[in-house]
Design a protein around this nucleic acid. Structure first.
Length: 305
DNA sequence: CTCCAGGAACTCC
DNA sequence: GGAGTTCATGGA
């Protein structure tokens, strides 16, 4: 999908500019806070003391970046136009026309709760995160809460990941010391004992199994990427212990951009019960997963507003 | 103390 | 093929 290529203004490193960055103008339907605070991603945090209206920083695809905005102007620190077009444009979902997505979703149901959720969730972008990291993150998420999921993932990275060079990024989240997400090899080598030390609990065997399968070539993310049938992809992912319907859908939606994947957790279960009369197959079309994220955000964070 | 958290495996019938 | 149980952990 080649949608909306923004004009990219590049600012290289200079004496009064320690980190290279790019500036994009007229970026619609992208709310940084909602996007990184809506439960799809566990490694981005707000930057303190920023002169921008909003700024979030985190590690993705092995690199620290920082995102800031002033109205519809978007700044991405620690990158350049080349890398943006190759990596971050796709990661951030800026290659997708969300105006059209929302129109499609709303055309498939006249449910008033859905309309309210789409309105409330406007600006959320579904990220395309690293498949391995996403798999582990959502295995850890099972029967767990978001604050604790973040802590566990952070300690996993610090103990088993590699330290990232953050020079020049001190004012953009690089002051705390950043680490990559551990590779399958690093995780397998650590073993279940170390994983338990890192408080993953009963999920230690699941993570070890996932790492072993990737190392043996039994789980191939490139193969999943090229398989068109989403249900078949889910079935492949579910061969990993600890991956059921919900986690498989999260991986497909948040790592592979399979917008038709529809994760049903306790919150979405309540939404279906309350607003859709218990009818699970609301039939929201090829962007049902995005609709799901609007509904999740609406129910979870905006109850009572 | 109990209950819950972006669930899933396991064990019964 | 469903219903109930258990899993490790910390915060409310």
């Amino acid at each position: 999908m080649d949608f909306n290529t923004y004009d990219i203004e590049y600012h290289p490193v200079s004496p009064d500019n320690p980190a290279e960055y790019i500036k994009l103008c007229g970026v619609a339907d992208f709310d940084i806070k909602k996007t990184f605070d809506c439960g799809q991603c566990f490694r981005f945090e707000p930057v303190g003391g920023t002169p921008h209206e909003i700024e979030f920083a985190g590690v993705a695809h092995g690199k620290l970046i920082s995102l800031a905005s002033e109205g519809d102007t978007l700044y991405i620190y620690n990158t350049n136009p080349d890398e943006y077009l190759r990596l971050w444009r796709r990661y951030l979902g800026l290659d997708t026309d969300y105006e059209a997505v929302c129109r499609d979703i709303l055309s498939r149901s006249d449910n008033p709760a859905l309309a309210r959720a789409v309105s409330a969730g406007r600006g959320i972008r579904i990220l395309r995160q690293d498949p391995w990291e996403t798999l582990c993150s959502f295995v850890i998420s099972q029967n767990n809460n978001i604050a604790r999921i973040k802590k566990i993932i952070s300690s996993l990275c610090k103990r088993l990941g590699e330290r990232i060079d953050c020079r020049g990024m001190e004012a953009h989240g690089g002051d705390v010391g950043q680490y990559t997400f551990p590779t399958p090899l690093a995780l397998a080598a650590a073993g279940t004992e170390v994983l338990r030390e890192l408080k993953v609990g009963f999920r230690a065997e699941y993570l070890a199994d996932a790492a072993a399968r990737v190392l043996r070539g039994e789980l191939d993310f490139d193969c999943i990427e090229s398989t068109k049938d989403t249900a078949a992809c889910a079935a492949r992912l579910k061969t990993v212990k600890g991956v059921g319907d919900k986690v498989a859908a999260c991986i497909l939606l948040f790592a592979f951009g399979r917008y038709d994947a529809f994760p049903v957790d306790v919150w979405i279960g309540r939404v279906i019960e309350k607003y859709f009369g218990g009818c699970r197959d609301a039939c929201l079309g090829p962007y049902a997963g995005i609709a799901q994220q609007y509904l999740y955000y609406y129910e979870r964070y905006l109850k009572g507003e």
